[in-house]
Every structure is written in structure tokens, then in C-alpha cells.
Design a protein around this nucleic acid. Structure first.
Lengths: 125, 125
DNA sequence: CTATTATATTCAATTTTTTGCATATTGTCA
DNA sequence: TGACAATATGCAAAAAATTGAATATAATAG
């Protein structure tokens, strides 16, 4: 069981990229749809799709299609562990501190639901 | 305490390289001299020195000079932990399985000592 | 079928990294 | 001092990664 340095280096190489790290951090709790990630990175859609493609082809993430939308999630627990090591454990944030706040304008079904949940209390009082 | 993805990516980038991983793996138990690493990688001396220079300038490894020889070691425990995560924990090997076997021809003082230690029992019986 | 929306692919230009090689530096010994 | 041995540095060529932008595909609604 000796180490394959080439293979290991290639895997890490894909993690050593700021936007890809941002993507991986975003999906490591639960899967997120591409439109989320586009809003989060604030980059052109083809750019985001390219990064997703690299990660997918390397077996780091997996996609799940739902109509027009595509959701991405980490491929396995090993990747999740690597991310925990590199980015720190996932912290459960307060709603008002949530990174999702800036994604509320995303038009995907999931976001619209979340937006309602967050907006309703404001009109309730 | 939000994550700086650029900085994190830059740190990992230097680890995402097969020869540098090999170097780091070699020095993570204890410091090793450059001539060791040249023998281990089987690469030209300037090549190895360049990789060491990159790692040194990034604060990943530290050097310790002893006459003509230079020994390198990991800079801190955080790096060691990253390596444990990426390469697995250090396994204490049997002498006959040791990676050091192939380094015995290295001319540095440390190696000559190790060579004696290994050779003597063969003549003792 | 056509239009639209979400996402993917392709490809070339740019930028960065890697590598090879010549040369420089530094310490030691005679 | 001069010669040698171990290591470092500088620089250019080659290779690889990144990015931007045009275009393609696929699902859905009408």
C-alpha cells in the first residue's frame, strides 16, 4: 500500500483553486443547484459550468438532474473529509448570517421556497 | 471567521505536485538532507533545490545547515496534519521495508552512519 | 413544432507553472 | 590561498491551467 503521488497530486490540484473551493464549500452540507452557484460566485454561467465539469469528471462531485435544473453534491465522504480538513468543519450558521441570503434572488424552485420562508415574517407583523 | 478561498487555494497549490509531495512525505518523520532527497527523487540537483526553495519560501518547510549539508524539516504541526490527512498517517515500517534502503549510497554523514548500522549485522554472523 | 430557460461544451487567448540547464554561492579541506 | 563538494539561484523554453466568449444541448411550456 504505497502512496501514488501523481494521483494524489492530481486530486489535490483540483481543490487548489479559489472558485472551485467556494463551490465545494457551498455544496458540502447539501446539494445546490447550478443557478445557486452562479449567483454565489458571481461569475458567468459558462465559467461556473466549466468548473463543475472539471470537478465532475474527476469524480469529486456528482450531479442530479431535476427538469431544467441540475443539483450538485459531493461524490463521497472522503471528499467531505478532505474539505473538513482544508476548510474546517461545517459551522451551523444563524439564519441572518447565512451565506444563502445573497442567493435569494436565484429563480430556482428551491430558492423561491427559501425566499418565501425568509420574507413572510416581515409582512406578518 | 469566514474562509479566505484565495489564500487557502494558494497554500494547497504547492502541495498539489508529485515530487513536492514525495519530498514532504520523506521529511515528515524527521529532517532529511538534500542529498537524500536528490537520491530519493532521482532528479537533477537544481530541480530538487528549486522545489525545496518553493516550499521554503511558502513557509512549508525549514532548513537547518550543518557544514556543507542542509537538512529540511516541516515548518509546523499544521503542515504535518495536512500531510497526515492527504497521505495518511505515517506508518512505522519494518527495517527491511524501509524507504531508506535505496538511500544508503547517499554520501552524507547521516547516511554513512545508517549504512554501517545496516551492514554490520551481515558480517557479524 | 417553436420558443425559452438552464446548463454544457468547445476553442482560442492569456497567464501560470513546470522543467532543464547554466551558473552562482557557500563551506571545508589541504 | 585554491580546489572541491553541496546546495542555491536565475532565466528561458515548454507544458499546463485558467479564463472569456461563442455556441450547443436538453428539458419544458405553449
Amino acid at each position: 500500500m504505497s502512496i501514488n503521488y501523481e494521483e494524489t497530486a492530481n486530486k489535490i490540484k483540483l481543490l487548489a483553486h479559489p472558485e472551485r473551493l467556494r463551490i465545494l464549500d457551498a455544496i458540502r452540507r447539501e446539494s445546490e443547484c447550478v443557478c445557486h452557484l452562479i449567483a454565489l460566485l458571481n461569475k458567468p454561467q459558462p465559467y461556473v459550468s466549466q468548473q463543475l465539469s472539471l470537478l465532475r469528471k474527476a469524480g469529486i462531485i456528482e450531479d442530479e438532474k431535476d427538469g431544467l435544473n441540475v443539483y450538485y453534491r459531493l461524490a463521497d465522504r472522503e471528499i467531505a473529509n478532505w474539505l473538513d480538513d482544508i476548510l474546517g468543519e461545517v459551522v451551523d450558521e444563524q439564519p441572518e448570517m447565512s451565506q444563502h441570503k445573497k442567493l435569494v434572488t436565484c429563480p430556482c424552485p428551491k430558492c423561491e421556497t427559501e425566499a418565501e420562508v425568509m420574507v413572510e415574517p416581515m409582512f406578518a407583523q
